[in-house]
């Protein structure tokens, strides 16, 4: 079974930019409401496969996308 991770952002604009860049690179990602237990924020988070985390992190670091952290979810 695939394990999921969630990337948390400070800004929804950055979350959506990350989504666009990751999709463009061929990764399966989904914008979801930020899980309440991870943050009190009302905004977006980006869900991705655990295996893709290093590559997606690389994409975000290579652009100007700022993110808080990436957490593993159930």
């Amino acid at each position: 079974m695939t394990e999921f991770c969630v990337a948390l952002f400070y800004s929804n604009s950055h979350a959506l930019r990350a989504e666009k860049l990751a999709k463009k690179a061929g990764f399966k990602v989904k914008v979801i409401p930020t899980p309440r237990h991870l943050s009190s924020d009302c905004g977006f988070a980006l869900r991705c496969d655990e295996d893709d985390v290093p590559a997606i992190q690389g994409i975000m670091d290579g652009d100007s996308v700022e993110y808080d952290r990436i957490e593993k979810v159930g």
Partner: peptide, 21 residues
């Protein structure tokens, strides 16, 4: 745009970001 996690809000948020692009 970008206020709720539902798909219509996400789509509206994408429009805002596409305008930036």
């Amino acid at each position: 745009p970008g206020r709720a996690g539902h798909r219509m809000s996400v789509e509206a948020g994408r429009i805002v970001n596409d305008a930036r692009d």
